[in-house]
Amino acid sequence: MTENKTSKAQIKANRRWEKNNPERAKYIRNRSVARTFVRHWANEEDIEELLEIYKKENPNAGI
């Protein structure tokens, strides 16, 4: 059986941080999923659609 590279204490600390910071953890997780999709699976049509959604619906687009 292979062992984790991360110590049990670090795993416990990470879980505690995620529990205490659920919104930030959700943001980081969703950002990671979006980046992975764009890098590995999105085609040009997907990118164009995502940019349109960003420009029309995202309140941060004007910043």
Rank of each mutant, 00 (worst) to 15 (best):
4 N>K: 12
4 N>F: 12
4 N>R: 12
4 N>T: 15
4 N>M: 12
5 K>C: 13
5 K>P: 05
6 T>H: 09
6 T>E: 13
6 T>F: 10
6 T>G: 02
6 T>R: 11
6 T>K: 12
7 S>G: 05
7 S>D: 07
8 K>L: 14
8 K>G: 12
8 K>D: 14
8 K>I: 12
9 A>T: 13
9 A>H: 10
9 A>R: 10
10 Q>K: 15
10 Q>L: 15
11 I>A: 13
11 I>Y: 02
11 I>H: 11
11 I>K: 14
12 K>V: 04
12 K>S: 11
12 K>G: 04
12 K>R: 08
12 K>Q: 07
13 A>I: 07
13 A>R: 08
13 A>G: 05
14 N>G: 12
14 N>A: 11
14 N>V: 11
14 N>K: 09
14 N>H: 13
15 R>A: 06
15 R>W: 01
15 R>P: 01
15 R>V: 02
15 R>S: 04
15 R>H: 05
16 R>E: 14
16 R>H: 10
16 R>T: 13
16 R>P: 00
17 W>A: 07
17 W>G: 02
17 W>V: 06
17 W>Q: 03
18 E>P: 03
18 E>V: 11
19 K>T: 13
19 K>R: 14
19 K>V: 08
19 K>D: 13
19 K>W: 09
19 K>I: 10
20 N>T: 06
20 N>V: 02
20 N>Q: 13
20 N>L: 08
21 N>C: 01
21 N>F: 03
21 N>L: 02
21 N>S: 02
21 N>M: 03
22 P>M: 13
22 P>Q: 09
22 P>G: 09
24 R>W: 07
24 R>I: 03
24 R>F: 05
25 A>P: 00
25 A>E: 01
25 A>I: 03
26 K>L: 15
26 K>M: 12
26 K>N: 15
27 Y>E: 04
27 Y>G: 02
27 Y>N: 05
27 Y>L: 08
28 I>D: 06
28 I>L: 15
28 I>C: 01
29 R>Y: 14
29 R>P: 04
29 R>D: 14
30 N>A: 06
30 N>L: 12
30 N>V: 06
30 N>Q: 10
30 N>C: 05
31 R>I: 04
31 R>S: 09
31 R>P: 00
32 S>R: 10
32 S>I: 09
33 V>C: 03
33 V>M: 09
33 V>N: 07
33 V>W: 06
33 V>F: 06
33 V>I: 11
34 A>I: 03
34 A>F: 09
34 A>E: 04
34 A>T: 00
35 R>S: 06
35 R>F: 04
35 R>N: 09
36 T>N: 10
37 F>R: 00
38 V>S: 01
38 V>H: 00
39 R>Q: 11
39 R>I: 08
39 R>S: 12
40 H>A: 08
41 W>T: 11
41 W>K: 12
41 W>L: 08
41 W>V: 05
42 A>V: 00
42 A>W: 00
43 N>I: 04
43 N>M: 02
43 N>Y: 04
43 N>D: 15
44 E>C: 00
44 E>A: 08
44 E>S: 04
44 E>Q: 07
44 E>L: 01
44 E>P: 00
45 E>L: 07
45 E>I: 00
45 E>V: 03
45 E>H: 03
46 D>K: 00
46 D>A: 06
46 D>I: 00
